[in-house]
C-alpha cells in the first residue's frame, strides 16, 4: 500500500488518479500509524513552502515523515513535496524543511532571460545511473515552479538546463524527489511512477 500524504495541497487528487490508472494500491491519509506502516509514501504539494510546512506541522506529520525516511520506506516527494525534503527554503523568508536530504531551496534567478515560473515541458539529462531516473533520460516532463533546489552533485540524479542547472530528480538512499509532475507528464511520467511502485514492491531495495 502506498500512502499519499493528505495535507490539503493542490495536486493530490491528480496524483491519486494517476496511481489508480496504473492499478497501484494507494490511499490518501494523514494518519500516523497508517503512514508508518505504508510500503511507500508519496508527498505531493503545490503552492508555498511555508504554508505546506505549517500544514504538515498542524497534522503532526513532520516527525512521522522523518521516521518514514529513517525506517527505509521508499518515499517520493513531488514538486513542492520534493522541495520540502530539504533543509530550508528561502521563499519569503527562511523556513526550515524536513531535512531528509541536505540542501536548500532558492528562487530561479530572474536575470537569466528565462521566464519565471519555469512552466512547461523540459528535457531531463541523466546525471547518475538509477532505475527511476533512467526512465527520464533525454525525456521531457512537465514542470511548474519558481524555486529550485541547490544540493550536492551526488544527490542529483537528473537535471534540466534552464539558464541554471535545475535538479529534476534527486535522491538520498530511500528518499527521492521529482521537481516535475509525473502525474502530468504523459507516458514517461506514468513510467516513472511505475518504477517507484517497483521500488516499493522490492523488499530488498526498500529495507537495505
Amino acid at each position: 500500500m502506498i500512502i499519499v500524504i493528505d495535507y490539503d495541497t493542490g495536486n493530490t487528487r491528480n496524483l491519486k488518479k494517476a496511481l489508480d490508472f496504473l492499478g497501484v494500491e494507494n490511499r490518501l491519509s494523514a494518519d500516523r500509524d497508517e503512514i508508518l506502516a505504508a510500503d511507500g509514501v508519496i508527498l505531493p504539494g503545490v503552492g508555498a513552502f511555508k504554508k505546506a510546512m505549517d500544514a504538515l506541522e498542524d497534522r503532526n506529520l513532520v516527525d512521522v515523515l522523518r521516521e518514514v525516511a529513517k525506517q527505509g520506506t521508499p518515499m517520493l516527494g513531488i514538486c513542492l513535496g520534493m522541495q520540502l525534503l530539504f533543509d530550508r527554503s528561502l521563499e519569503f523568508g527562511d523556513t526550515k524543511g524536513l531535512s531528509l536530504i541536505s540542501g536548500e531551496v532558492v528562487a530561479i534567478p530572474s536575470d537569466l532571460g528565462v521566464k519565471v515560473p519555469h512552466m512547461g515541458w523540459d528535457q531531463n539529462n541523466l546525471k547518475q545511473a538509477d532505475p527511476i531516473a533512467e526512465v527520464f533520460d533525454k525525456q521531457y516532463s512537465y514542470f511548474v515552479h519558481s524555486f529550485y533546489v541547490k544540493t550536492a552533485p551526488e544527490r542529483i540524479l537528473a537535471s534540466v538546463d534552464y539558464g541554471v542547472e535545475i535538479p529534476s530528480i534527486v535522491r538520498q538512499e530511500n528518499v527521492i524527489g521529482m521537481q516535475f509532475h509525473p502525474e502530468k507528464s504523459g507516458d514517461v511520467g506514468l513510467a516513472g511512477l511505475t518504477k517507484f511502485k517497483e521500488m516499493v514492491s522490492n523488499a530488498d531495495y526498500s529495507r537495505n
Partner: peptide, 8 residues
C-alpha cells in the same frame, strides 16, 4: 530549455 507547446 522549455519545449514549444502544440495544443489541440
Amino acid at each position: 530549455m522549455l519545449a514549444k507547446r502544440i495544443i489541440p
